[in-house]
Amino acid sequence: MDNILHVYALCTLLLFIKMFAISCYQGFHRIKNKAFRNVEDAGFLKVAAQTTELPQVVRAHQAWLNDLENIPLFWVLGGLCIVLNTNYTMTVWLFSIFTFFRVIHTITYLNSIQPWRTIAYVAGVVCLFIMAIQIIFTII
């Protein structure tokens, strides 16, 4: 892949698949345990609605929220790196490392694995900051 836009697109697709997998994970646990909080969902399967959420669903939701704090920043900063033509090699590495560690973060979040969850989070955030620094140096 000699085009930075291709790398960006691939990373975006991988992050989409990862986020979609979180949704499937939640649905799997709800269906498996027949544990639905929404009355209409529970009624569809003729079970009582639950007052509390399953622990697996709560963790997946927390991982999802964490993605919503980080992945949109990747999209914006990554897009700016592309438009501003930042250093190709460094940008490809940053896109790839960010994506890798977001996947690791989700896996470690869903499985309650520390300190790897924090390490994966920090590694992703460091990538975002380096992208921001590249952008600053490019525009000044």
Rank of each mutant, 00 (worst) to 15 (best):
T91D: 01
A120H: 10
L65D: 04
N3T: 10
N3M: 11
V103D: 01
G79S: 05
F28P: 00
M131S: 07
V103R: 04
E69R: 08
Q114G: 12
S23K: 00
T52Q: 15
N38F: 12
Y88I: 06
Q134T: 01
V125F: 15
L84Y: 14
T138K: 15
F74S: 05
S96Y: 02
H61T: 14
L73A: 12
E69W: 07
F101K: 01
L94W: 09
I139K: 12
T118R: 09
L110Y: 08
T86G: 10
M19V: 11
N70Y: 00
F101I: 02
P115S: 08
V7T: 15
P72R: 12
F16M: 12
R59L: 11
A123T: 15
P72T: 02
R102F: 12
I113P: 03
R117I: 04
S96C: 13
L10C: 11
K32L: 11
L73S: 10
L5R: 14
V7K: 07
A35W: 10
T91I: 05
I4P: 06
K46T: 02
A42N: 08
L13C: 12
F44W: 11
A132H: 06
E69G: 05
L80F: 14
N3K: 14
Y8V: 01
R37P: 01
G43V: 00
N66A: 07
V58T: 14
A9H: 11
I133W: 13
H29C: 01
F95S: 06
P55W: 06
V57F: 10
T12R: 02
I133S: 12
I97M: 09
V57C: 11
L77S: 03
R30Q: 14
I140W: 14
C24E: 06
M1E: 04
Y121L: 10
T12Q: 03
C81L: 11
I113E: 10
Y109G: 00
L5C: 01
A60R: 03
L94Y: 09
E69L: 07
T108Q: 04
I130G: 04
I31V: 14
W75H: 15
C11Y: 03
V83Y: 15
W116T: 00
T108H: 03
I139S: 07
N38L: 14
G43S: 12
H61M: 13
R59E: 10
T12L: 08
T118Q: 11
N38W: 07
Y25V: 02
P115W: 15
C127D: 11
D67H: 05
I82L: 15
R102L: 10
V47P: 03
T51L: 09
N87E: 10
T89K: 06
L77P: 03
A60C: 04
F129E: 00
